[in-house]
Every structure is written in C-alpha cells, then in structure tokens.
Design a binder for these strands. Structure first.
Length: 958
RNA sequence: GCGGACAUGGCGUAAUCGGUAGCCGCGCCAGACUUAGGAUCUGGUUCCGAAAGGAGUGGGGGUUCGAGUCCCCCUGUCCGCACCA
C-alpha cells in the first residue's frame, strides 16, 4: 500500500469537520486549558510558510493537552480591520469589506489544508458588528471611568463627581460648585480613561491619518513608509499611563521570556526621581533667599498663581543638584512667553517657531546637533541659591516629565554637549573615588555613572551617590519645594484614526462636547461612504457618509442632512485604531455568540485567562501592552477575572527567506555563469531568481528561460553540466522571489510532512531561514513509518500472541518519555528526531506488535494527525485518535543491567567499559585497572584520585 | 549610546542537572538494485594525520577531577529602544 497522503488528509479533514471533533464545550470537572494564537490580519498575499509556524506549535500543544484529558479551548479568528484593505479600496474602489471577505476565505482555505484543530464555531472577526459592538461598549466604559490613584483601580466617573459635589475632593484651581456644566465636563475630561484632547500627533498626510508612536519608525510610517509630521489635533486617547505601574508590576506574574518582559519594561520606562520647584530669579522675590532668609517666604505657585514665581522640573539625579549650571525648557513650555526678557524676545520666538515646525524626522535625524537659545531669564537653585540662566532647547521633550530640566553638564551627556556648545560652566559634583576630582574643562565626556561619591555638594559631600539622592530628596521635601516621584516614558495611546475601515466611535457631539450613545443602541454600524479618501475639507472618510447623524429622540442613525444640533447631532468621524479590536478578542472567544454581554461570567469563570499565547515578538510594544491594559480595565470593572490576560507566552521566531541568485556576466548580457566558475564577483551581476525554479541550488534551465521574456534565449556557463545558483538569507518577500507557499508543499508532500518539517527546522522561538531542501528527509520518515505499519498490517494474520520483545518496549517507552518532556518544554524539533529514531529502531527490529505500534501513533497524533488517524483506524480502532489516551511512561522498561561507562584519564575520555549497573566504585576501579588499555594511559603512574559517578562516568587522575 | 538574546561540522541542529561533543535530518562520497535515476536500499562523512594519535563548540583568561554548559574580559551577529532628564 502506498502512502497516499493527499487522499488520506482530505478524507480525515472532512471527517473531523463533520464529526465536530474540535468543538469545545465548557464541561465542569475536567481540567481546562486555553491555547491561543495571535489572530492574523488577512492580507491579500495569503499565508507563507512563516505564518503557520506558531500555529503548528500551538496545535501540537492543544492536541497533546486534549490527549491528556484537558478540555482545551483553541480558537482562531481574524484581525480584519486594517490599512491595506482600505488602501486597496482607494486605488480600486473595491469595498474593504469585500476584499477582507475574500482574503479571509483564502486564509481559511490555506489553514484548513494544514489540519489545525481550531474550533471554528468560535471564530471572531473584528469587523463583524456583533464583535465590535463590544469594542464600542468597552470604549463607553472607558469614557465613563477614571483611575482612582488611592485604590489603584478604575472607578465610575460618577463617583468622582459625587466626591467633588460633596467637597471631599477639591478642584485644583477653583470651586466645583461655581463651575458651569461645560467647565465641569472639561474638568472631568482630564480624568476619563478615554478622553478627548488636543495633542501633538504623528500625522501622516499620505495615509490621511494619525499614527501611534509605535507605528512610526524614524519619522516614517511603519505601513507604507510615508513621511510623518507632528501636528496638534483633537483626538481620542486612552489613559493607559494611569496603568503604567500595574503594567510593570504585572510582568512579575507572567511566564514570558526575559527579553520580552524587558522590552515592555523599557517601553513603559519607569524612572524614579524627584520633582523640584525652581523659583524664578527676580530681584524682589529672591532677596530673602539670596540673603539666606527662610524658604517659607516663598510660596508654591499653585496657591499663588500670579505672577509665576517658579517652575517644576523632573530629575532622576537629585544628588547632582549642586552641579546645576543652567536650566532648559522645551520649546513648547508655557513659561517661555512670560519669562523671556524683551531683548531676547525676537531670538527666542524665532527659535521656538523653528523648533516647533521641525518635523519629527528632522529632529530624530539631527539628534547630535545642539541647538537652543538663552531666554535672558534666571532661576534660583533652591539649595545653593545661585542664580542660573534659563535656556530653551529642543533636546528637552514636551511629553516627558514637566518639559523642563535642571542641567548638570558634568554628569549628563546631553547637558554636557549643550554646555560645551554654549560655553556654559561645568561643575563636577560626583567622583568615582572621594578625592578623584579633576578639571571638567579637560573632560572629553560627562561622567554619567550612578556609582561613586558626591563632591562639592554641600551637606551631601562625601556621601555615596545613592545616599546623596535620598538625602537631597529628604531635604527638598522638608523644605516643601519638591517631592519624590516616578515618571514613565509610556504615553497615553491615541485612539482616533482618520480612516474608514475601523470601528466607528459610539459618539455624537452636542454643543461641541462628546456624548456617548446609549449602550442598548450598539452596535453603531460602519456606514457606507461614496469615497474612501478624506473629504475636500480634510475630514476623515466618514465625512462622505450620507447617513451619519444621531437622532437623540428616536435613538437611531439618520441622514446627515437632518443635523439641526437640537435633536439630530453629528456623529464622530474618526474610527478606532487597529489595536482596538485585538485588545479583547481572547475574552470574546470564551463566549463568542453572546448577544447580551461581551462574555458571560460563567464563561470567563470557567476559562479564566489564556494559559498559552503564541505569536510574534513584534507585538511586544503594541498589542501586548494594549491588551494587558484593556484586560486590567475589564478586571477593574469585575468582568475579567484575572489581572493578566496571557499567563505564558511564546514568541515564534521569524522564518526568513532563502533567496537564490543567478549571475549575469557584465561583458555578455545574455550569459549566465554558474556560481563555481565565477573568478571575480565584480564581473557579474547577481539577479534574484524564483526559488520555485531552483532545486538544491541547481537551476532548472528550461523553466528559467520560460520564467521571463528577457531570459528566453539565455546562455549558460555550466559546471558539471549544472547551473549552480548562489543563495542568501533575506526577509521572505515577493520582491526577492523567495516566498514559499505552504499550499504547494502540502500538495507535494502533505500537511503532515509540512507540519513536521516546520517543527524540525529548529527551536520554535528561534529565527531561522526557510530551506525546502530538508523537507525530503521528513517526508521519507513518514513513508518509512507508513511502511512499518504496512508491514504489520500485511502480516498480522500470521502473528501468534507472542510476548512483546523487550527491545521494542524499551524504545517505545524511551519515546514516550522523550516526547512528553519535549512537548512540555516546547521543544518540538527534538520530538521529530525522536520519532525518526524510534521508527528506525522499530523497523530494524521488524516490529509488528500493536502494543507498541498503537501507543506510538498516539504520540505522533499531535504532530502528524492525519497519518496517525489513518493508521489508527487501519489497526482496527473505531473512534478518532483525537480522543485517545496519552500513553503512560513506565520506568521499568528502561532499566539496564549494564552501563557503558566512559573511562577518562585526567579528564580525557579514552575508552568505554561495560559494567553491571550496580557496580560499586571499588569494582569499577578494579575493572578499569585490569582493562588492557589502561596501562598505556596510566604510563606507570599510580592513580592519585578516582572520580566515580554511578551510571555516568569514571575519571582516573594520575 | 542603552537594554536583551545568540555564537557548535559544508548546512539546519542535538547534547534537559557540569560527566563519551556532533544525535536526527539535509548535502556530499562510495556501493547495491536499475535501460535510466532527481525512486529505493546499504555503508561512510568535525578537522589534521597513512596510522598511532592530536586538535576541536567565535577569541582570551578563570573555577573544577572534568566546561559547549558556570564566572570574568574581548569580538561578531541579530532584536528592541533611542535626546525619556
């Protein structure tokens, strides 16, 4: 019987689907396990072999868990909103919904061929109104909640209002009771977890939209690579910064790789330090200070808002406050206007205008270039009482800390560069050793290290840096001019996109202020538009919608023309960003068809959170942060039951492409030289060639000629009658002609071979190049395995009920042990090689014993489900192998009577010696001494020492 | 610049606890079967050496009876962040 994988796989895929073997139902009393893949964006290009890598790994684990008796939730869906479909719509007029539908169908077809055990009844699509209804619902909740710093959790905004009403909580600059409704709403906007604000955003004119920080790299958009500029715009944002500390702390509880945790920590960027108020220098105000008067003469600016006497800075190095020689404000700082002296005004205004108009890209490209201007104003160092000049420079960022710094050029490289550029004094206040003070004017760089001792620093001189930090903060707090504080690099997430293909906001505007739609009116469905581009007036595409206004009285969407601002109001024109729909999808899978709630308490109570999450590390700073935030918010609301959504996370490595090249002669434009014949790479032009017409780096000449017209009458210089191509590892991409499509491989070798080969390539987490070369070996293994079982099936009638030979049981149990261990530690590449060894051994033993062959199939089933199921049935089983029992490893079969001891002399392995397993050290030494080889290695010397590790090794030191 | 990961035959990799380095597969070499082989099977394949033997896990040092594995320094590659005070 031939191994007809095409027929077998199609047949079983159909049977599994019809029998619903992968349907998951919540059953009490069985242990549960949730295995999740990051759902894909269905792109027009379809899947390449890199995509299924993680899916195969998670599928193996899911199937394994099922065989071990777990109730496994293993769903799949689509992150269906996104830019490419919209870009395509702009170019072709094809509605994104249509494109998306087609792409999903193609993805599904490709996924189905690989034989995954997804429960497709639970599929979710982010663009489905029944799904995004809950994305919109969550947005409304975010709007209606604020973050309570004391309780460290989200609470209803109505609680905040109640506190303000009762006076339990004070408004900073006024009285709640005296505020108008509008003022109150504006005030509350400063607390809502989803809020509207004018913020400088990354505006991409080409895409007509705003991008999140992590969607911009080097001043260019990640998608498309278009220029991005800074622009002030009214945008929805999510107050993710409120959760910064919890996002850091939560990392302690999850089983993620250290590197990914570190990426998240860096992204959140927690830094401890001090906020310090520096008074402005004015003759009148500062006189008492300068004369050594009391600090209390000076008042906090919040209590005495006019005139502004001081400004706040943030520093992580309070210990260096004695080394401050100038101050720097960011160009956006509100104080600049007030403090700039008349004679400096023109210069400052000019600089500020220039700096503000500089695009993010220019700013980043010229990080090393120092620029800035003196305001003419001075501050007073609250500890030394020195007068300090205040500068403006764009190396201080508006978005971090307070947008103002105390500059300590001796111990901060950026301040150092600035000081050198403007000839400002540099004063050493930290030294590696107590007396290691030198002249800073001779320094080539600043001394940024946090180790060493404070010097020239008043009351902290001589202290270790760490102690000095604490001492300075204590003094500052005592004086009431500052306090210990923590800053985060993390910014609030901009949540508006000037785009069509995304979730509409459930928001309308009344008197310019946002109102939430009633929850019962959700979903607010995405309207049809006549054009997917921004409107002529620069509004988002939804501005083209004819039916896009909210009738408050009738609670429905009506024609835009009916807007009267009395009962019919305009709806929000922006849509939500890509991360909106992907932030909570894992929860929806638990209860995907629920139409009265996001998910039921029972469902989430049963599944809890994701036990194993598999996906690419590229989501380290985007999706994985947003989803954790989203989950924590739902946790605060009492919906999610776990604070962290993804308990264990595995990042599958990227599969790179292996490109092939032909070499065209520079002398003869039609001559292609085989790689081995090239004397000088200068003489040839390497040209990418489609990997599908190359086999083992040997070019198929006829197919090459047929590939493209310009190669039709190519001539070749061959070696050994072959044209050998060059190769290189590159990103897998269409333009390099190195894309490997899984469908082709499935058609040629079968899904089981593809699954095994992708695992065989190396550790799942490691980046590795795709090389189809080795797939033959894996395919041969399955053919050999087929033959092994075929042999049994053909001869079973002659079999007596003999006892199973020990050797066969031994290899079986070795395999059970190894495969179980391997799966538990996600080492699937070693599993495949274990199967090969097992199959080779059983073939050599001519094994034909169902007691060995059947359990082996169960072990194989998670990896190669089709062939396992087929052979399982051929061996007489009636039920699916998916519902079989994982074999139990029995130590008994592995017990050995003798051990092959490696014998070392002075740590070098010389020979091996078979000894009884129970041999003592004395017996072992005697055996070694009487072995003929020993004399040579002893060289007449007596052993000084003997190391004997039972069942491991013997080492003779002489 | 800062942070993280990694470095083993011609190639992908293995060695899970400090105990025979190179399992398994690809490729290559030789042979068998064959009209043929890009099918199948058998054997070989880290390097140097005829052999005995020696060397060997990016380089240098250390700990240890013993190091791919632990420690220190250096080099290289990949990834993340990048004026974050």
């Amino acid at each position: 019987m031939e191994y007809n994988f095409n027929e077998i796989e199609a047949r079983w895929q159909k049977a599994w689907r019809e029998q619903g073997v992968y349907r998951t139902v919540e059953v009490e009393g069985r242990p549960h396990y949730y295995v999740l893949d990051m759902f894909p964006y269905p792109s027009g290009a379809g899947l390449h072999v890199g995509h299924p890598l993680g899916y195969i790994a998670s599928d193996i684990y899911s199937r394994y868990k099922r065989l071990r008796g777990f109730n496994v939730l293993h769903p799949m869906g689509y992150d269906a909103y996104g830019l490419p479909a919209e870009q395509y719509a702009i170019q072709t007029g094809q509605h994104p919904a249509v494109t998306t539908e087609q792409n999903i169908a193609r993805y599904r077809e490709q996924l189905d061929k690989i034989g995954f055990s997804f429960d497709w009844d639970r599929e979710v699509r982010t663009c489905d109104p029944q799904y995004y209804r809950w994305t919109q619902w969550t947005f409304i909740q975010l709007f209606n909640h604020y973050y309570d710093e004391e309780q460290q959790k989200a609470r209803p905004i109505s609680d905040l209002v109640a506190k303000l009403e009762s006076g339990e909580r004070k408004v900073e600059n006024g009285e709640w009771k005296e505020m108008s409704e509008g003022e109150r709403q504006d005030y509350l906007m400063g607390y809502r977890l989803a809020y509207l604000a004018d913020i400088p955003v990354n505006w991409c004119a080409e895409l007509g939209t705003v991008l999140a920080n992590d969607e911009v790299v080097g001043g260019l958009s990640v998608r498309g690579g278009y220029p991005v500029e800074r622009k002030l715009m009214r945008q929805w944002s999510l107050r993710i910064t409120a959760y910064a500390q919890r996002l850091v702390d939560g990392l302690e509880q999850v089983e993620w790789t250290d590197s990914l945790k570190e990426i998240q920590r860096n992204w959140i960027g927690r830094s401890e330090g001090a906020a310090v108020w520096f008074p402005l220098y004015k003759e009148a105000d500062c006189k008492p200070w300068m004369l050594g008067g009391s600090m209390e003469d000076w008042k906090y600016p919040k209590e005495n808002p006019e005139p502004v006497p001081a400004f706040e800075i943030f520093t992580t190095r309070p210990d260096t406050i004695f080394g401050v020689t100038f101050m720097v404000l960011c160009p956006e700082h509100e104080l600049i206007e007030q403090i700039t002296t008349p004679e400096k005004r023109d210069e400052v205004t000019q600089y500020v205008t220039w700096a503000k108009n500089r695009s993010e890209r220019e700013r980043q490209a010229e990080v090393k270039k120092v620029s800035g201007v003196f305001t003419g104003a001075f501050a007073v160092n609250p500890l030394t009482k020195e007068r300090i000049p205040i500068y403006v420079s764009d190396y201080v960022l508006a978005g971090y800390g307070t947008g103002a710094i105390m500059a300590v050029p001796a111990h901060d490289s950026r301040d150092f560069a600035f000081a050198r550029h403007f000839g400002l004094p540099i004063r050493q206040v930290v030294a590696p050793e107590k007396d290691a003070v030198s002249d800073p004017s001779t320094w080539e760089e600043s001394l940024d290290s946090k180790t060493g001792y404070s010097v020239n620093s008043g009351f902290v001189s001589g202290m270790k840096v760490k102690d000095a930090m604490a001492a300075v903060i204590d003094r500052i707090e005592e004086l009431g001019i500052g306090h210990r504080t923590v800053n985060y690099r993390l910014r609030d997430a901009i949540f508006s996109r000037q785009r069509y293909w995304g979730e509409p906001f459930p928001v309308y505007y009344k008197e310019g202020r946002p109102q939430m739609l009633p929850e019962e009116c959700l979903p607010l469905e995405l309207p049809e538009v006549s054009d997917f581009k921004p409107t002529a007036t620069g509004e988002p595409p939804l501005g083209h919608a004819k039916v896009w206004a909210w009738d408050e009285a009738n609670r429905c969407v009506v024609e835009t023309s009916k807007i009267d601002h009395k009962t019919v109001f305009p709806l929000e024109l922006s849509t939500m960003p890509g991360f909106a729909g992907s932030s909570g999808y894992y929860l929806r899978y638990m209860d995907p068809r629920n139409d009265s709630a996001y998910f039921s308490p029972e469902a989430v109570g049963y599944w809890q959170n994701v036990d194993l999450y598999v996906g690419g590390a590229e989501h380290g700073t985007g999706h994985l942060i947003y989803a954790r935030f989203w989950n924590k918010f739902l946790f605060d609301l009492g919906l999610a039951v776990k604070d962290e959504p993804f308990q264990k996370l595995i990042n599958q490595g990227m599969i790179q492409g292996r490109s092939n090249f032909v070499y065209r002669s520079k002398q003869d434009n039609n001559l292609y030289i085989s790689k081995g014949l090239i004397r000088n790479m200068e003489e040839v032009t390497p040209i990418h060639v489609d990997i599908n017409i190359v086999d083992n780096d040997v070019l198929d000449l006829d197919r090459f000629k047929a590939w493209r017209p310009e190669f039709a009458d190519a001539r070749f210089e061959l070696e050994d009658n072959k044209y050998v191509c060059g190769w290189e590892i590159e990103k897998m991409s269409k333009s390099m002609f190195n894309v490997q499509n899984p469908d082709d491989l499935v058609a040629r070798y079968g899904a089981d071979t593809l699954r095994l080969y992708e695992m065989f390539l190396g550790p799942v987490e490691q980046a590795k190049p795709w090389d189809t070369g080795g797939i033959e070996g894996v395919h041969r293994f399955l053919k050999k395995l087929w033959k092994l079982y075929d042999g049994y099936l053909n001869t079973q009638s002659n079999q007596n009920n003999q006892n199973t030979p020990d050797a066969e049981l031994k290899v079986l149990h070795q395999t059970i042990k190894k495969i179980t261990d391997d799966i538990e530690r996600f080492s699937f590449n070693t599993s495949v090689s274990t199967f090969m060894i097992c199959c080779n051994t059983l073939t050599d033993l001519k094994c034909a014993d169902p007691e060995v062959l059947k359990p082996l199939l169960v072990l194989l089933a998670p990896f190669a489900p089709h062939i396992a199921e087929e052979l399982w049935h051929r061996m007489g089983e009636q039920t699916s192998i998916c519902t079989a029992q994982w074999p139990v490893f029995d130590e008994r079969y592995l017990v050995e009577d003798t051990v092959k001891y490696p014998v070392q002399f002075n740590g070098k392995m010389r020979f091996t010696l078979d000894l009884p397993a129970a041999a003592t050290q004395q017996e072992a030494v005697e055996a070694v001494m009487s072995a003929p080889e020993s004399a040579k290695w002893l060289g007449g010397k007596e052993p000084k020492k003997v190391i004997f590790v039972p069942k491991k090794i013997i080492n003779i030191v002489c």
